[in-house]
Design a protein around this nucleic acid. Structure first.
Lengths: 249, 249
DNA sequence: CGCAAGTTTGACGCTGCTCAATCACTGTGG
DNA sequence: CCACAGTGATTGAGCAGCGTCAAACTTGCG
């Protein structure tokens, strides 16, 4: 039973046993951490690579006036400091939004695996490109959708992403450890306005939430009203792509 | 005299003559194109790679209601469809914002160069990671800064990026072919509000603009008031980094 | 000279923010 | 088992930043 890290990369490339073994060696000995722990600080020059194996985290920047913008959510399988590999310093920080398990691998070991197993490297870059696609869609959310659509769209994103890794129940519910403030800070609105607007979605019977769980009651309707199209998440097409492109095989 | 494509990659890795020669072969025979031309459409599966050699472009998405969000600006040296290499379909379109010159290389040829010259591959990924850093800062702009700071911050970004490729005059002026609507659509505000707010910056003597030129009259003051810190653009540190990391050499 | 595209300005209203109070939930110690 | 504290959720009132609609003006260009 591979861990979330392996499962995630498998979505992009069909890994061999030895590739899986190498990845498992990178991500063994997970360490438990607590909600609020800061995994990476702004300005760090990471010399090791941290992999989130369970729980949620986020990338974020804090402004002078104390306000916060969440840049991305990290879910099990995500690498926290991929940006530090090539570039000098982290321009943002990484914080845990729930208790979590984190594995740490030396940067050299990760480089080594990527050198030896080009398909693993390829899978990691695919994953980075999907993260970028999500980030682009967030720009659309924040820049051009009004609050109710932003929220609906973001909830559809969670639903779709978590569904693709088997973390959504048949009735559309999933674990949701974020506070309303965490969510609002990713959407460019205040938590007060988020609360009011989510209440409207609840009144309309589109969603239910509470006790760190979220249920999308009417996924199709929520997607329709918020203009959600899961294409940008590249749900699984890349798997075929990978097998068909010899240049990288 | 290498072209903008080579100059850009040189910022990240110190290229050898044969590497430069290979890149020049990829980007010879530039074709002139017109402002408004669509280089890549949403849903495309690019089989070739387009390189912008002069002029400006942007990545953008159009919503159902016709509103537009600009996701990134492309300046000389930028690759238009890097995202299509690994992933299946383009989730956004690429459009020219000024007349421009574009070179087209077969995707296979690009893969080939990256396989043979790992340092070139490394430089391209560095470039991608800087683009991501810019995109993260845009999220902060749109999500958490008010209009006047957004505009000031974005203008500082242009000033800094163009300065690093020698396209800014001593008095802080540079060619600026974007319409106010192009700019507003990247900032998540309307062109009307952009106009009013830029007028305030002009009244304060911070900027001057008109006739497709922009001048940042008081760069330090504009940076101070808008909270601009050029660190996220990774101005040149990566050059040392690249030389010092053997795993990729 | 006259059109077309882009810029500037005005009036008005709504979305979302601020400040602040209250309520609900969870975990802790007695 | 219960009181209590702390965190997060919810609600209210008032206001301001920004959007909408529309008109006038300016600039580039054939």
């Amino acid at each position: 039973m591979p861990n979330a890290f392996v499962r995630k990369l498998r979505r992009f490339v069909d890994l061999t046993d030895s590739e899986v073994a190498a990845l498992l060696r990178l991500s063994d000995k997970p360490v438990p951490k607590r909600r609020g722990d800061r995994l990476i600080e702004q300005g760090d020059r990471p010399k090791s690579v941290q992999i989130l194996l369970s729980g949620w985290g986020c990338r974020q920047k804090i402004l002078r006036d104390g306000s916060r913008q969440v840049l991305a959510y990290l879910v099990p399988g995500d690498i926290c400091d991929i940006h530090g590999w090539l570039l000098s310093r982290m321009d943002h920080e990484v914080v845990l939004l729930s208790d979590a398990e984190v594995a740490t691998a030396p940067a050299d070991a990760v480089h080594d695996v990527m050198e030896r197993f080009r398909r693993v490297e390829r899978a990691m870059w695919c994953s980075t490109l999907v993260d970028e696609a999500i980030s682009r869609e967030w720009l659309v959310d924040i820049g051009r959708r009004e609050a109710i659509d932003r929220i609906g769209h973001r909830l559809c994103e969670f639903h779709s992403r978590l569904q693709s890794v088997g973390m959504v129940t048949k009735d559309g519910a999933f674990s949701f450890p974020l506070t309303q403030e965490d969510l609002a800070d990713s959407l460019g609105i205040t938590s007060v306005h988020l609360n009011r607007t989510m209440a409207r979605l609840r009144e309309q019977g589109l969603i239910e939430f509470g006790r760190k769980r979220m249920r999308i009651a009417l996924p199709e309707r929520l997607a329709e009203m918020s203009g959600f199209d899961p294409d940008y998440l590249h749900p699984c097409a890349p798997i075929e792509e990978a097998a068909a492109t010899p240049a990288y095989g």
